[in-house]
């Protein structure tokens, strides 16, 4: 994993959310981002709406890319 971002002005801030229709409770997002994602009693992800901390952005983008149903979405927060 790469180190911390050096250039603060180029830091992308992102938010993550789950498309509940597409989600099929694979749970990859919870494996990759246990700090942000918890699973409810039926295996579906619970995510907050706060911006993703800088050190987790790369993982969040990866989780969005790897979700088998493309249900984990990351979007940039417009400043």
């Amino acid at each position: 994993m790469s180190g911390t971002t050096e250039n603060a002005s180029q830091e992308t801030r992102i938010r993550v959310k789950v498309d509940p229709v597409a989600c099929d409770a694979y749970g990859y997002c919870a494996e990759l981002l246990p700090e942000l994602v918890t699973l409810d009693e039926w295996g579906y992800p619970v995510v907050g709406s706060e911006p993703v901390p800088a050190h987790l952005v790369e993982l969040a983008v990866r989780a969005a890319r790897d979700c088998p149903r493309q249900a984990f979405l990351s979007e940039e927060i417009a400043h």
């Binding site: 509940p20 229709v21 989600c23 099929d24 409770a25 409810d40 039926w42 295996g43 579906y44």
Partner: peptide, 9 residues
């Protein structure tokens, strides 16, 4: 029957 939390909850 589309969203887990509703479907099971």
């Amino acid at each position: 029957g589309q969203c887990g939390p509703c479907m099971f909850g």
